[in-house]
Design a protein around this nucleic acid. Structure first.
Lengths: 241, 241
DNA sequence: CAAATATAATAGTATTACTATCATATATAG
DNA sequence: CTATATATGATAGTAATACTATTATATTTG
């Protein structure tokens, strides 16, 4: 019995590992000049830029500083990314793609729309934890970057052109998935897309407020954004969980 | 009869004019070196910066360009504002102060908490219109700046220090007013501050989406953000309007 | 009219966000 | 095993930005 259990555990572990390591988040290839996943240097650029942007903020972050930190050269980094704006878009796309994967995985087999939406809100609003499947990326810090910097990636004069070029597809797909799930709970609700975008963007904002403007939020360790948004969504949709 | 009516109209117009022109939006004096309201040049700096930021975006906006536009000198603008970041904080404070004034004015004498909150949401979410009381400021364009640039004023590494220095007091007071009105409608609701910040920040976001990511919002000319947020708030609070 | 104050003009600095060129290291193909 | 392609590193250079400093000239005020 013990042997079988151990065997199964071992089997599950290995298959899970293989499955996990075969997952790749696909990002619009216009966002980079050379795929950073294709080399060690590329992975270090991505991995260390997350630490550095988190550390000094996107405004102070430069390719020169990053080069120094990873023992490489400014000019080498420019061979991967045109500029730091595109690197930010790349990081954000990765983050939203990673979240999307979790969303789809977690809600896939839930038949009841109410339960499905509940689970979806939990995934989208929970505190981020490290994912061992991606060793070069610190998801916790990446989440912080998205909270602190994501708006800057679309609050630009170039947003419409970049939107046309598909720089925000993953994010848009994610909001649309949420929107659909909302409609499945209440077909008559007139604002599914707005509620979806409010939850996703609002989650980032509430986490920011917890850290910097505690008086502007009712959320903290006890009252989580998850509870807030679940209450908000289901009361708005006139459905009890 | 006609004479009296005309007289009353005239009287009301004059008193209203006086009242209106005696209103000043008070802004933290650490945000400027010299009060821009105190001179013609100061007003031109504020007025034209609104047009210019709106036109080319905050990133491309510089004091040098502004100087050229208003026929003044870069160095003269630096005598009013330390840098463009503080100018943005000044403009944003002015905007939120202006909105706060309207909020207080419009909700002042409403005894019923439900009606009061409804009116408050209308004020906070409606499309901006020109206010003749402030000739040097284009409120419609300022609203657009707040939509497109406000996040950048607090998504910085200096936010905690600047918050301590009171750079965001007006905004915080506004959110707190909304929060209190929400609590008055339903004392048992556990997330009044979060709902208030969601409505105020969410309004900016929904207007941005209407302009740039129409598929991510359910709002447009017919379904207004006002209707969306009124529905959201009152259903969440389990009160019918 | 003198003195104070506001504004303008000019110059200068460190940093940023690149581009260009050339050198060297490493991988790969024949 | 070598030729060659490819990746990376080093260095230099440019225009623009975000200022600071100084001096000159208007304009206001006492």
């Amino acid at each position: 019995m013990i042997v079988i259990l151990l065997y199964l555990t071992c089997f599950n572990f290995n298959t899970m590992e293989k499955l996990i390591h075969s997952i790749r988040i696909t990002i619009n290839d216009k966002l980079y000049l050379k795929d950073p996943e294709s080399s060690n240097l590329g992975k270090r650029i991505v991995g260390e830029s997350i630490l550095m942007i988190n550390d000094i903020g996107f405004e102070s972050f430069t390719f020169k500083k990053l080069g120094k930190k990873i023992g490489s050269n400014e000019s080498s980094i420019y061979r991967y990314f045109e500029n730091k704006h595109k690197l930010l878009l790349y990081l954000a796309s990765w983050y939203w793609g990673w979240l999307e994967y979790q969303l789809v995985f977690a809600t896939n087999n839930i038949p009841d729309p109410g339960h499905k939406l509940e689970r979806a809100i939990e995934i989208m609003t929970r505190a981020t934890e490290i994912d061992l499947a991606f060793t070069h990326i610190n998801e916790v810090l990446l989440n912080k970057i998205v909270i602190n910097e994501y708006s800057k990636s679309y609050l630009t004069k170039e947003v419409d052109q970049e939107n046309k070029d598909g720089y925000f597809v993953i994010y848009k797909r994610l909001v649309n998935r949420m929107s659909q799930m909302i409609s499945e709970v209440n077909v008559n609700y007139r604002y599914p897309a707005s509620l979806a975008s409010t939850i996703i963007e609002g989650t980032l904002h509430q986490y920011f407020l917890i850290d910097h403007f505690a008086s502007l939020t009712s959320c903290d360790n006890k009252n989580t954004p998850t509870e807030y948004f679940k209450h908000l969504a289901f009361n708005t949709l006139n459905k009890n969980i």
